Simulated scan of single mutants.
Amino acid sequence: MTAAPARIDHLVTSGTFSLDGGTWDVDTNVWIVGDDTEAIVIDAAHDARAIAAVLGGRTLRAIVCTHAHNDHIDAAPALAEATGAPVLLHPDDLPLWKQTHPDRTPDGELADGQVLTVAGIALTVLHTPGHAPGAVCLYAPELATVFTGDTLFQGGPGATGRSFSHFPTIVDSIRDRLLTLPPQTRVCTGHGDGTTVAAEAPHLQEWITRGH
């Protein structure tokens, strides 16, 4: 019997996003990359039990945080406790992480160029600051997919109007790290519908104009 191929599972969890004294209701995309035996979770948002249900009996190798806004990490400690998997975060986002989890630090650091492997699939960490200082994307060439968190959405960059964010930086990150990927690359976002590099690349100048 041949092993089942790697696949991407997707669920949407609901909760709140809080920053700078405001709180908003949000639906957040949770992505699970793996096969029938092991997986990595990208953004453990809101509902550890629902994420564990989609994982089933698979071994969770890591909980990867694309950034440390609470709507992407609030369920990470509970999921780590339930599965034994380490929580991984870029160190530049530790100040944001501590706003949500002051008594529990991540288990490991993400670094630009680092490669995580699961089910024979390599996911390369791309440091893409702007929406948050330690924001990262994960590029899986074998799946022709990049997981962008809140850095790139269908229709443009993630929000940069709050603390720890910077519009020129996110534009640089998208231009230099994401729009250079193959045009057919699927973009799996942190909220809402996905897109492709080809669909977003022509609009870079519009975003720059709109951001000023």
Rank of each mutant, 00 (worst) to 15 (best):
D112R: 02
D112L: 02
G113D: 15
G113N: 07
L116N: 04
T117F: 02
A119P: 05
A122W: 01
A122M: 04
L123I: 14
L123K: 13
T124P: 01
V125A: 01
V125Y: 05
H127D: 12
H127I: 02
P129F: 09
G130Y: 11
H131C: 14
A132I: 03
P133Y: 01
G134S: 15
A135P: 02
A135S: 15
L138W: 10
Y139W: 13
Y139N: 10
A140K: 03
A140C: 07
P141I: 06
P141F: 07
E142A: 10
L143S: 05
A144H: 05
T145M: 06
T145R: 09
T145G: 03
F147R: 06
T148D: 05
T148L: 04
T148R: 01
G149C: 09
G149Q: 12
G149L: 11
T151P: 13
F153A: 07
P157C: 11
A159F: 06
G161F: 11
F164Q: 10
S165G: 03
H166I: 05
T169F: 00
I170T: 12
I170L: 11
S173N: 08
R175S: 06
D176V: 12
P183M: 01
Q184C: 07
V187E: 04
V187F: 02
C188P: 00
D193C: 08
G194H: 10
A198H: 04
A199P: 05
A201I: 04
A201M: 08
H203V: 02
L204A: 08
